[in-house]
Design a protein around this nucleic acid. Sequence first.
DNA 1: GCCAAAACTGGGAGCGCTCACAATTCCTCA
DNA 2: TGAGGAATTGTGAGCGCTCCCAGTTTTGGC
Lengths: 333, 333
Amino acid sequence: MNVHRRRRPTMDDVATAAGVSRGTVSRALNGGRNVSGPALSAINKAIRQIGYVVNPHARSLATQRSMSVAFVLSEPQDRLFEDPNFHILLRGCTQALADKDITVLLTLAGTPEERKRVSRFVTAGHVDGVLLVSTHTGNPLVEELSDVPVVACGRPLGHERDVSYVAADDRDGARQMVTYLRAKGYRRIGMVTGPPDTPGGVDRLAGYRDVLVDVDDAMIVRGDYTQTSGEAAMTRLLARVPDVDAVFVASDLMAAGALAALRRAGRRVPEDVAVAGFDDSRIAAACHPPLTTIRQPWARISTEMVRLLLRLVDGEEPAAMILPTELVIRESA
Amino acid sequence: MNVHRRRRPTMDDVATAAGVSRGTVSRALNGGRNVSGPALSAINKAIRQIGYVVNPHARSLATQRSMSVAFVLSEPQDRLFEDPNFHILLRGCTQALADKDITVLLTLAGTPEERKRVSRFVTAGHVDGVLLVSTHTGNPLVEELSDVPVVACGRPLGHERDVSYVAADDRDGARQMVTYLRAKGYRRIGMVTGPPDTPGGVDRLAGYRDVLVDVDDAMIVRGDYTQTSGEAAMTRLLARVPDVDAVFVASDLMAAGALAALRRAGRRVPEDVAVAGFDDSRIAAACHPPLTTIRQPWARISTEMVRLLLRLVDGEEPAAMILPTELVIRESA
DNA sequence: GCCAAAACTGGGAGCGCTCACAATTCCTCA
DNA sequence: TGAGGAATTGTGAGCGCTCCCAGTTTTGGC
């Protein structure tokens, strides 16, 4: 037997059942302004009785609004998922938007093909806006989505002018950390940077340089945010600068790698070499010793992203917002 | 200045530009049946020129189809995300549906509140169907979504009759593993089970019992799929059955815990005690020693889920599908 | 060269909703 | 008691698309 689902009740059905007109039902559904008490309760009763649910497509067609936004995760590696910070961000956005009755559609756009699909999906008008999480520069998505309200998470290198974004103050975070290390008496402070095509790669290095103005380039080695790259970078740094007594690593994961390299080299942390990370990700507290690191205000980032996006949707101009970071002191430094 | 986005071109604009009627454009867009060559190319040219994109809401309103399905992840713990198998599943579904031009909307429904939101979203008619990933029994979502085509991943305990599902043959996988252990000469084979409110908890134990019919209940200890629970369970088992020489653990993560417990107890693996896992998750190969385990056919599971869902959407009856598992032999057993 | 069948085309109706506007009712106060 | 205004209500006109049907053109067979 075919599951021929019976016709869903429409607003007219509700109107008839409640003895009012379609317009009144519509008003009742949208805030209940200018609807008399009796009418309102009759409508609510009718809705409950016949099990009415508004048809989102009809509504969207009429209002030209979909009441949903896409949360696009445009990272090749799925590593982000493991980061509890990512969940804070996602949940924060979802929550903030739920308050406005807007649904969040999580979309993965790791591969070029997926990216194309997402791009089509968005430009087709399925969503009112996009929350874009993508760290690398040169992501075609930022350009493809130029007609749609977009708020990026983190500074979109090369697009600071034309796309809104909310970012943590990486540069200042780095400054805080290096200043702290110096205050603690460390003198030979090295750095493991992130890739130069990411804001974290650029800004954290800039902050380091702000404090250590005349630092020798030999003190700086590059990583790519992976744990193994951190390990390799630290090894290289130790070879180049044997008397290094502290190292600021641009991410916790790389810092974990650095810790391993130091252990293998027989250096104690923090007695011989202090290690500082960045992100305050889950791994930071789990390391031995636990990492001194920089915490980013993910909860606030999410609410600000939503606020910015809603303003964009309302026709306002793009804007940027930089949020302060916080030094978290643990045992590694 | 307000970003008053200019009116998007509609099908009528295309029709005018191409010198044909709306109906013809529509036909051209939907497979091009019964459209003459000249008309088709004029339309395509017009579409490109004026940058036309169909309005999904209007289309959905007219067709009563949204051309999208929700992939609902209804697990409290976000641990699933870390599992590469989960990504295979998600990607597989996305891919299979993309072929039919159907979009997948990933939705997290961990908390009761999120669950309610998802439920509203789905029943409102935003999507044509639901791919449901949820291991625990008693998930209210299964019932709330009863009016909508749903295909579950894994046997939905207590709802086998009314909801479609695709599952790996856990029971047979367990049988294979225990049979293998026996064939290898192990005689005192214990088991660490999963929670009894999950299909994996029930079926893997059942498979174990199928082979070891008269096994003493003392050989069986319960875990909850976490690593620490696996460690605790193994410790308990060692205390209860000191001469245990093999243990079948219902998940790789718990098996990793069991490995730790054995190491702490000074037993070598596999010389003193063999350890077998289940899932073939990323951790399985990373363990020391690498785990002998059972692989589930995630790629096929995803395509079958999609197939079943599309059939449901077309009005067919619910159905179930059990797919074979595969023994993966590594060093731990 | 004719006719039936096949291929193509145009346009109306309708999907279920919102919004603006006009019509109606109900107050309030002089 | 009636005018003026506020609150409430009904209705028509879309939103942009698909689907169906009737009409028109093309094709092919003899």
